[in-house]
Design a protein around this nucleic acid. Structure first.
Lengths: 341, 341
DNA sequence: ATTAGCACTCGAAAGTAGAGAGTGCTAACA
DNA sequence: TGTTAGCACTCTCTACTTTCGAGTGCTAAT
């Protein structure tokens, strides 16, 4: 357990470093209003904190910077969320003024969040595992092309244009749509293929001429795109941070962001609530120099998605955590309001 | 008009510079197999080409680099598209193996193009000005929320989730959908609002209880999102280019890419066919250091979209132009095949 | 326990020197 | 007359050195 003095100095150093990105010396701390100690005394405390692995030096005679453990301590013990009403209101207003389209809200939130924080925002869109099929439609555009549209109970719309194989009679299409709507509506998205095989196939045999061909066709239609919607906002913000002087680092960062599969994996596994992962605590190699803060937003009992902020370990934790918490609450409320009443 | 020798040397210098990004000296040119001249002679020719503003020096005793005018000359006079079958086949195969969803094809093409060229690809999706409404649907998710789905004749699907205002009777919804499908199908997308007002409004008066409320509601539904689909691929590729040593430049570039409105403006105004815009020929300040190559792809008579490549003025023009031409042809063919037969 | 003083360390910035690539010009050559 | 070899000159790039200052740890005094 740290003494009060140690805690005060640790906090002051981290706060300072978060804003300057330069190592903090003992003199700079001792001149602070809140601290009535000489530089020498501060040096002693700093040495203690270094002994505890909460601070580091970049070289033998440099000032101190926080270690990852230091940040962790700071996040766990020091931060008392000071709510910045102004910024939260910005988000509230923007969201409420734009109740138009669900996915639009998510995107917008990402942008606003990124602007307010100057970090990169990643939003993993609604996870549809619990959704059921609300309606399915096949619309023929020409004798050779059709558009398939699937609507889920959560209001998500999936569509594909697919060429109609030769041999399938257009008149069979309507029959088919009726059968599908009769049998598949209400079925969980993830079970569609299975239900098609067990329940619908026999029916098709009776009513559809080229039922084998049609079956293969429908199978490809309902193959639900597992791929979650990913939205990344404010990528360029990361370039403002002074730790990105190096083009190699920038390249690494952007390449990482382009690997959607990896990011989805990263975000999909987050548990409920807010989580801060600092530096090497991250499992993915490419972001071991970053801090990732994730927060989930929900609809009723079903987890829907994840909002994340990605920035240097030197992050404005206080501000960011407050904002993120408030945003995911706001979105949860809003989605609940929009979709569930 | 340039002499044959001048042309040869200009071409050789540009070719070289495109790959090395370093100023080219006279000796380097004279040792080339294709050139049987001494360095001194080459120097004389180079001085002539500089006089013509086709080459530049970075400082008084440096080698030469192409000027923007030089690139322009190179693009207009020198390039004889040497088709790289291998790369074109890569694109062909990828496109043909994935005839699933129209927008998917566009995205995929952007990715492949970016990988093959190492530049940033921007694709401006289908411009739907000539499309007509194929079908409209309103699906109620709950007593308070509905999803509206619009399908166009080109197979484009637009959807929105919209809260149902209090006062609208759910039973009126079906009537409404019937009226809409009866009267709006076949109407050009851009005229929907007008037709709704002139033709549908009167009908609504007769059949719908809260027709005023419903009218406002439907109006918001059919407000077609003009916003074209923009897809940017391979952003990080630009970082490979040696001219991007400078973080400021990188920042400028990415900020520009994030300004979608600006980019859409840039690409939407392109005429048919392939167009190369070098450096200061670009109207937008932020890309005056870049070359933009655009190519349109079409469906029948209607222009559909624009594919663009953005890279340093030192660009592999030969390769890029060939690829882009072939890709837009390929996409034109494919879309024609998919949507129009 | 706290602080002032001091010698020491290290990195960042500025200055210096030399090497190398390239040019333009002149004079010789085919 | 067009081409080439030779040479002095220019400018950048790199490596090395020097200097400066911020910061530390230790010791001794308060």
């Amino acid at each position: 357990m740290l003494t009060e003095r140690q805690l005060l100095i640790l906090e002051t150093i981290i706060d300072d470093f978060i804003h300057t990105a330069h190592p903090i010396g003992s003199r700079a701390i001792s001149t602070k209003e809140s601290i009535n100690l000489s530089a020498a005394t501060v040096r002693n405390v700093m040495a203690d904190l270094e002994e505890l692995d909460l601070l580091e030096k970049t070289h033998s005679s440099s000032g101190r910077i926080p270690s990852e453990k230091g940040y962790r301590y700071y996040v766990d013990h020091v931060i008392s969320p000071t709510i910045k009403e102004r910024e939260i209101n910005i988000i509230k207003n923007i969201i409420q003024d734009n109740i138009i389209e669900f996915e639009h809200i998510v995107q917008l939130s990402a942008e606003v969040l990124s602007q307010l924080t100057n970090y990169t925002t990643i939003i993993l869109g609604p996870n549809e595992v619990d959704a059921t099929l609300k309606q399915i439609q096949l619309i023929t555009l020409s004798s050779q092309t059709a558009v398939a549209i699937l609507v889920t109970s959560t209001g998500h719309v999936e569509h594909k244009s697919i060429p109609i194989p030769k041999g399938i009679d257009v008149s069979d299409f309507e029959k088919m749509v009726n059968i599908l709507n009769d049998r598949l509506v209400g079925v969980p998205i993830v079970n569609l293929a299975h239900t098609l095989k067990t329940e619908v196939y026999e029916l098709m045999k009776k009513h559809i001429k080229e039922y084998k061909l049609m079956y293969e066709y429908i199978k490809s239609v309902i193959r639900y795109d597992e791929q979650a919607k990913l939205y990344v906002g404010g990528q360029s913000n990361i370039l403002i941070q002074p730790e990105f002087k190096d083009v190699d680092k920038i390249y690494e960062f952007f390449t990482m962001l382009e690997d959607e599969a990896e990011i989805i994996k990263l975000l999909a596994n987050q548990h409920d609530g807010l989580k801060v992962t600092i530096g090497n605590e991250n499992e993915i190699e490419a972001i071991k120099n970053f801090t990732l803060i994730t927060s989930t937003y929900k609809l009723g009992m079903n987890q829907l998605g994840t909002i994340a902020l990605l920035g240097p370990t030197r992050m404005e934790y206080r501000k960011v955590i407050t904002l993120l918490k408030s945003l995911s609450n706001e979105m949860t409320d809003l989605l609940y309001l929009t979709l569930n009443k």
